[in-house]
């Protein structure tokens, strides 16, 4: 089944919140998930990232987005950044969230065995590259994201149904 990018981003964001990640990192994870799936990424990397809210690329990679922008400002359009082990699968997707056009994103290894992300960048000229109209996603991934997202929903009560929404009850006017 395919989805709109916004559906995927919103669902992944809620899933990250449901998994226990802070809201800002969850929001960025939502956007990165779209980039990741649009470039053909495997669902397992997303599920792995969601598994531990205390030690996850979801916590670390938002800072990478800032690091890329700063590195380009300092060193020019071709940069290499060292990653923490475990972050390499999602790092290129996060890199695409910068206000730069990523013309090349390759993963490698440093001499001491740490993963590295090599990027060629260019300023965005005119309209930003658009995402495909549909994002394909594994049903198992959608199920897991939906299950986690549901952890952010509050069960309904009669009180919340009436007072919580504050709706009037004169619908046949």
């Amino acid at each position: 089944m395919s989805y709109s990018a916004n559906e995927i981003a919103t669902l992944a964001q809620k899933a990250a919140r449901g998994a226990g990640f802070p809201p800002h990192q969850a929001q960025i994870f939502g956007a990165a998930t779209v980039q990741f799936l649009a470039s053909g990424g495997e669902a397992q990397a997303l599920l792995d990232a969601l598994s531990d809210p205390d030690d996850s690329p979801i916590l670390r990679l938002p800072l990478l987005v800032e690091d890329i922008q700063r590195a380009v400002d300092l060193a020019g359009p071709e940069i290499t950044l060292t990653l923490q082990p475990g972050d390499e699968a999602l790092a290129p997707a996060y890199a695409r969230l910068t206000a730069l056009h990523i013309t090349r994103a390759e993963l490698g290894q440093s001499e001491d065995g740490l993963p590295r992300l090599c990027l060629d960048t260019a300023p965005v000229q005119g309209a930003a590259p658009t995402l495909p109209p549909r994002i394909a996603a594994d049903p198992a991934l959608i199920d897991r994201l939906s299950t986690l997202a549901a952890l952010t929903y509050v069960p309904a009560t009669d009180s919340s149904r009436s007072a919580g929404a504050g709706a009037g009850d004169i619908d046949n006017d």
Binding site: A150, L151, T152, Y153, V154, P155, A156, T157, S159, S160, R161, G164, A165, G166
Partner: peptide
Amino acid sequence: YVSEEKLEPRLGDRFDDPGADRES
């Protein structure tokens, strides 16, 4: 918060209503 009921956004009383642990 977001209610599980068609995901309707709602507003609760932190000291009277359940769900504050799932606050938006």
